[in-house]
Amino acid sequence: MSAGRPPSLLGATWVLVRKDLLLEWRTRARANALVFFALATLLLFSFALGPDTTILRRAAGGTLWLAILLASVLALGESFRVEQENAALDGLRLAPADARALFLAKSLANALLLMLLGAVILPVLAALAGVTLVQGPGPMAVVLVLGALAIAGPGTLYAAISSQARARDVLLPLLLFPLLIPALVAAAKATSLVFEGDPMLQFQSWLGLLAGFDLVYWSLGFVLFPRVLED
């Protein structure tokens, strides 16, 4: 038999992303439940804010990102529960798979899931709150991509930590929510500007903040995740 040559970092990431997406597809009932959870959250916000459509419209950006953020906590926790079921993560560590590839793959898979979730609940939000994409679908897509990356990067790192601690269901949001406040602010503001137009030309700045957040935390995650996994 042949002595194999292990794949490169990107090769391993590709293998692992495919594995994560395949798992996500096999357990799509869970992803569906996640979508309905996010929709229920949207409904709850609408009821809590009252029937006044002007308030709903002005809060639409924040509502969208809160729904995604709340659903993301469940998605992130779930993405590591799969790894823990038969200690599959230990199997990957021993295989051996590069921990950095594991981080990139898991974060990418989670980000894709959140982007999909956002895209699915967006039309429902538009109907509930009576908003339209004044700036068109392009800028909205950019905000959705950058926002999902902002949640998934540090979220994956924190989910890896909290999945192995006691009280993990409390710990993950407690760690993640304060960290994500800048990303939430930026994503919600940018989304509002997409809904309501951007007379002051602030859209670029919020997008810049979001992109900077992504860059910082994906780099940090890339560097720190091996320590989280191995110690």
Binding site: L157, P182, V216, Y217
Partner: peptide, 14 residues
């Protein structure tokens, strides 16, 4: 480290 790195980002965003 992650929290400390967030301090300037939080400051600017707020």
């Amino acid at each position: 480290i992650i929290i400390a790195v967030d301090i300037p980002i939080i400051w600017f965003s707020v």
